[in-house]
Design a protein around this nucleic acid. Structure first.
Length: 573
DNA sequence: GCCGTTTTCGGCCCGACTGTTTTCAGTCG
């Protein structure tokens, strides 16, 4: 049974919460939280690192003690240090910390004075009016707790990036309508292009902050004003998203943008570098004593700590500072590098447009090639292609290609990987294709080892080229199926196959961590839209964003190659 | 608990907003 990084992270976070409540050294608490965060963003499972005898203390924020604790968790599934603390302090108190406005001190006071341990206890206490009697609490705090509890579900809901984009545009228009507003920028995880955002962080430069904030909270989508000062404000929108607005003077724009883009861990690391040079870095600038020495642009901020500019997508404290220091930052892929789309459907199955329409749309976007990948017969709901219909499509593509100049439609398919690892159509027809994209569409509930074997067996077929949406997840809708992605990637590398970064914004599959993992392995990927309509071809930018977050460069992505080079790459040994 | 071209000990990012306080603690990002 493999213990995953996220499970180790949960234990560390819980221990951090309980130690925090007990009033332990806050830096010790932070060490556990940092470790948890590092683990969540690490591309490879600790389990596999330990098996390969790698030194865990090489990982950022992991010393001798935490390395031992990780080993213990991987071997036993348990963290004895947590069990010791839980003997003194109930573990469920950690749940109370998840309520916005309740931190370690208040949770401790509620527990010590009112015996509140669980969310249910807290509900009863808030309803009975006992909380306001506590020292340091009052009627407003009790009311706040009462209201937060009404919407509390226990799990954090993040909004998918493309949905956040839809919300943000009209809000930006509203802000720009105010005369005092100069620059408006969306920062935070939105700017880092994370697949989901927790809230929207918007930075505005203006002389009079208070006026802008007054204008901001009057936006007609605002459901509730959480806080409102002269330089920052937080609101909840009707859509459910929260928005943080921050107003700074123009001279602080770069420092503020850096601060507000995050991630938090990246900021701390940069500021710590500043401290070592005798600087203080905050959202207003870089200061030596009280003198501002930088801050108008982000470049200036990085320069002040001796680093080149680091693109937002890399700012997760996953090694980007070290890479920057050594001059080894990746030259991230851009949308312009993409020369073709290698996963597109037509109305022959579940797409909305004809072969001709799709080809024209791809050519209009400046591509040199595209592949047509309709479903195979197993996907009956999409009226998947059997051998006969595929052969008809192949002939249709040949006809279209005769008429096109400087653009080629590649003959392909999205082939189902059957439960036993065979492919859904016979080799006799697959050999007529330029490439295949293969995917798992059913039997998601196999064990991790069986799912992994199923995919590897499929890759043994010499006509297998690209594994589509390798994890099978739908963000916020369906978890990925259990699979050993590292083993799958290694299998692909050994066999001359590739993995896909599916650009559908609800898929974004491979994940950013997995992109980084396969890059370090030397495996290349295809970034493709899985377009089901002509307009879907424009989703490419989301896939490229994800690839950038995974440190991918042009050379790591096969559909940045010319058609000739691509065909060479696709030839299996 | 981590970490080191100032350090193996003594630091550890920094500021805004709220509520309960009469100057600040708690929380958040």
């Amino acid at each position: 049974m493999t213990v995953h990084n996220s499970e180790i992270a949960v234990l560390f976070d819980r221990l951090a919460d309980l130690l925090d409540i007990e009033g332990a050294n806050p830096f010790r608490v932070r060490a556990y939280r940092n470790a948890a965060q590092m683990l969540r963003g690490h591309p490879r499972d600790m389990d596999s690192l330990i098996k390969q005898n790698e030194d865990l203390t090489e990982l950022p924020g992991i010393g001798k003690d935490l390395a031992e604790k990780i080993k213990t968790i991987v071997e036993t599934g348990k963290l004895p240090a947590l069990q010791e603390v839980e003997a003194r302090t109930p573990g469920v108190l950690s749940d109370l910390m998840k309520i916005q406005g309740l931190g370690p001190k208040r949770v401790k006071a509620l527990y010590k004075n009112l015996g509140i341990r669980s969310i249910d206890d807290l509900r009863r206490a808030a309803a009975s009016g006992r909380i306001r009697e506590l020292e340091g609490f009052g009627a407003k705090t009790e009311q706040m707790i009462h209201e937060r509890l009404e919407h509390f579900t226990g799990k954090e809901q993040r909004t998918r990036l493309f949905e956040a984009e839809a919300v943000v545009n009209s809000l930006l228009e509203h802000l720009r309508r105010h005369k005092g507003v100069k620059d408006v920028t969306v920062a935070g995880s939105f700017r880092r292009r994370r697949e989901t955002v927790g809230d929207l962080d918007i930075l505005v430069t203006a002389k009079k902050g208070a006026d802008v904030i007054d204008h901001f909270v009057k936006y007609d989508e605002v459901a509730e004003v959480i806080s409102k000062g002269t330089t920052r404000s937080t609101v909840h929108l009707r859509s459910g998203l929260s928005v943080d607005l921050r107003v700074v003077p123009q001279v602080s724009y770069g420092a503020a943008l850096h601060y507000f883009t995050g991630s938090k861990a990246h900021n701390i690391a940069v500021r710590t570098r500043g401290v070592k040079k005798g600087y203080k870095i905050n959202e207003y600038g870089v200061f030596r004593k009280d003198k501002r020495i930088a801050g108008r642009t982000e470049e200036e901020v990085y320069e002040s700590v001796g680093l080149p500019y680091i693109p937002p997508e890399l700012r997760e404290n996953r090694g980007e500072l070290e890479a920057a220091r050594k001059g080894k930052l990746p030259e991230l892929i851009t949308v312009k590098d993409i020369r073709g789309d290698l996963h597109c459907h037509t109305n022959a199955t579940d797409g909305h447009h004809t072969l001709k329409q799709m080809a024209d749309a791809a050519a209009e976007r400046g591509y040199e090639y595209m592949s047509i990948n309709d479903h195979s017969r197993h996907v009956t709901v999409a009226h998947g292609l059997d051998k006969k219909r595929l052969l008809e499509q192949i002939r249709a593509i040949d006809k279209i290609n005769e008429k096109l100049e400087g653009f080629t439609v590649l003959k392909s398919i999205e082939l189902d990987i059957l439960e036993d690892g065979t492919l859904d159509l016979p080799d006799g027809v697959l050999k007529e294709l330029d490439l295949t994209v293969c995917s798992v569409h059913y039997k998601f509930n196999l064990s991790r080892s069986r799912q992994t074997d199923r995919i590897l067996r499929a890759m043994d077929n010499p006509y297998f080229n690209i594994l589509a949406h390798p994890g099978g997840r739908l963000i916020n809708e369906r978890d990925p199926y259990p699979v050993d992605m590292e083993k799958v990637a290694r299998g692909a590398l050994e066999r001359g196959c590739f993995l896909e970064v599916n650009a559908q914004p609800s898929r974004l599959d491979l994940t950013d961590e997995d992109c980084k993992m396969v890059k370090e392995m030397g495996l290349r990927v295809s970034v493709a839209t899985d377009a089901h309509s002509t307009s879907n071809l424009d989703l490419m930018r989301f896939g490229v964003d994800q690839a950038r977050r995974g440190w991918l460069e042009k050379g790591d992505v096969i559909n940045t190659r010319s058609l000739r080079e691509l065909k060479k790459l696709l030839k299996r040994k």
